[in-house]
Amino acid sequence: MKKISRRLFVEGTGAGIVAVAIPLEGQAQSAPAAPTTASNAPKTTIKLTINGQQRSMEVEDRWTLVEVLRDHLQLTGTKIGCDRGECGACTVLVNGKAVYSCSQLAVWMDGRTVQTIEGLAQGTKLDPLQTAFIEHDAPQCGYCTSGQLMAAKALLNSNPKPTREEVRAGMTGNLCRCSNYNHYVEAVMAAAGTLKSGGAA
């Protein structure tokens, strides 16, 4: 695996609030000396497991994990809401832990196990979280839903019987602009079997 500084990468994503005014990205007036085109971009071959399937693939070093999933493996269930680590729409599990796949380079996935929304159900058998999400109307527009599900999965992996507060804390990195937070929390509690009757408003 090539050495790519995470700090440089994160700075390059332009995340966060700017303390002083800077122009929009892509406004630099001085061009890079030698543009990197699709053909000469540095590449690395990685081996990883995605949704139980082992794969070996050549990735450009600048590709993010979500880019590989969506553009090169057609796993479009994982969404991009910001591409800079602010929203959680891109949440997947890497070695069982929830991560923002927009903020991980694909080359870092060498030797790792990735689980996406497409790998959550066992064949046609839905995960209890998915069933609960349907029954409690957790998705409104549904755009944050894959991320919410994967965050909830990671939470229940480490804490199978969470309290309402623990669910909220565990999923707070997953924004929902439809703001269906009440139903998301209820659904996770129901899937964990800890929803008290009358919990629904």
Binding site: L75, T76, T116, I117, L126, Q130, F133, D137, G142, T145
Partner: peptide
């Protein structure tokens, strides 16, 4: 809802 919770 099924399509929305399976990424499809």
């Amino acid at each position: 809802a099924l399509l929305r919770v399976t990424g499809k």
